[in-house]
């Protein structure tokens, strides 16, 4: 039930400002993202610096780090995810209430980073949970995390959530369960090694080019 953009700007010229319920809702959501207080490795130190006074995450309404997944909207995967830790990360993500978002912070959380060849390092958290924003860097600077948060805010702003809307783009408001399978320890690797619904292993096509 979005108002026509042309009519909106026409009304704005006459001094009448219109806003949709969706707009108010998203404005509230994007300015009160509560992250899960959860650090894995050295990226967490940068995350702490971001929350502290010099970079001041509170400017974006996201300073309330929650020690419980029940109260958190955002999971910042800050650091190397070992295979020992991956099931816990997925379980914590499953315990967060919808709508929920994930920022993969740093090279390790994206792909395993410098430890990619290690036997016990998960090659990217996006193998098990859906990631909204990736931050490259090793570790990324606090400014990069702030930029990721602003990117996430833009994403939230563009989502439609309310059932009054014909097309709901926010996954959390759709039908069906939002539980992602928690991997278990197998003989050599996590079982399954990745969630086939989320992640597709990149393959290098061999061609007979001369």
């Amino acid at each position: 039930m979005a108002i026509d953009e042309g009519l909106k700007s026409e009304l704005a010229k006459a001094g009448i400002f219109t806003i949709t319920l969706e707009g108010v809702y998203n404005w509230g959501r994007k300015n009160s993202i509560w992250p899960l207080q959860f650090g894995l490795a050295c990226c967490a130190i940068e995350m702490i610096a971001t929350a502290a006074s010099r970079f001041d995450l509170a400017r974006f309404g996201a300073e309330v780090f929650r020690p419980s997944p029940r109260q958190a909207d955002l999971m910042i995967v800050a650091g190397t995810v070992t295979k020992k830790m991956a099931p816990q990360v997925v379980r914590l993500y499953n315990q967060m209430p919808e709508p929920k978002y994930v920022i993969a912070m740093g090279a390790c959380a994206i792909s395993g980073g410098p430890f990619k060849q290690g036997y016990n390092v998960l090659k990217g958290i996006d193998r098990f949970i859906p990631v909204d924003v990736y931050i490259p860097g090793c570790p990324p600077r606090p400014e990069a995390l702030l930029h990721a948060l602003m990117t996430l805010q833009r994403k939230i702003d563009g989502q439609t959530s309310l059932p009054t809307n014909a097309t709901v783009t926010n996954r959390a408001y759709g039908e069906g369960s939002e539980e992602y399978p928690v991997p278990e320890f197998g003989e050599h690797d996590l079982v399954p090694p990745y969630n086939p619904d989320l992640f597709k292993a990149p393959t290098l096509p061999r061609t007979n080019a001369k």
């Binding site: 816990q88 379980r91 914590l92 499953n94 209430p97 919808e98 928690v182």
Partner: peptide, 20 residues
């Protein structure tokens, strides 16, 4: 009123520190 309700087995567990 506006919260999406999606209860699941893991979400309804009493312990919330990532450990089963």
């Amino acid at each position: 009123l506006i919260t999406p309700r999606k209860p699941s087995k893991i979400k309804n567990e009493m312990y919330e520190c990532g450990v089963q």
